[in-house]
Amino acid sequence: MLEIQDLHVRVDGKEILKGLTLSVPTGEVHAVMGPNGSGKSTLSYTLAGREGYEIVSGKILFNGEDLAPLSSDARAARGVFLAMQYPVEIPGVTTINFLKTALNAQRRARNESELDALRVLKLVREKAKALNVPEEMLRRALNVGFSGGEKKRLEVLQMSLFEPKLAVLDETDSGLDIDALRMIAESVNAMRGPSRTMLVITHYQRLLTYIVPNRIHVLASGRIVKSGGPELALVLEEKGYEHLIGEPA
C-alpha cells in the first residue's frame, strides 16, 4: 500500500508538488495523468528519493514505512523501482554487468546471498526473451547508443528482473512505436499481482488502453484534482485536460 499524504516538494527552491494526496492499495495499478509541468516527473523522482527533491511537508508511506529518510538505494532494496523517462548512459559498463551489480547490491542489502555471473546471465536471458531484448544488447555499454525503444525495453527488463514491490513507470510509453508499446504493456501486465503496487505516470491515454489501471488520478499544478475509474482516460482523451482543470494544457 502506497500512501502519499499532503506532499509538498521543492526543487531548486520552487514548490512543485503542493499538497499531493494519493493512495494505491497493494495489488492495484493506478495511473497518474497530467499535462506538461503538472509535477509528474517530480512525483516519480521524489518517490525514488532523488537528491534535490526536497520534501517540505507531508508523508510518503509504503507498507506503513516512511520513505523520506531512506536513501535512493535503500528504497530500491526495499522494493521501490522507477522506470525512468530518460534512462542514463554509462559508458564502459556493460549492461549485463550493470544488471548483476544492481541485483546483487539489492540482495546484499536484504541479507540474501549474491548470485554468480552465470546465474544472473541465465535469469536475465529469460526476462530478455519476453521483451525481445537481444543478447548482443546485454554486452553493449549501458544505454550507450541504444534507440529510444531499446532504452525503454531495458527499463522494463530491469523491472521484471528486480521484481519490485512498488513499481513506478514514468512516461514509459514516450518514444515507442505501437508494437514496442504493446510488448512493453504485456510485460507490465504480466507483472501485475496481489503483492505488487504499480503507479503508471503518463501524459497520454494511449498506454492505458494496454495497461488498464484500477484508478486514474489527474495531476495538475502539483495536486490531484480528480480521480476516477479507467473510463476517465477516455474522457481526457476526448475533452483534454483543459476541460477538467480549467486551464490550457
Partner: peptide, 24 residues
Amino acid sequence: DDQLFYCLSRGIGQEEAVALIVNG
C-alpha cells in the same frame, strides 16, 4: 548526478556506483 542517481535508484550504493562508473 544523473548517472549516480540512476545507479542509486537500482540499489547500488554511492561508493559502489562511483567505482562502477569510474571502472567503466
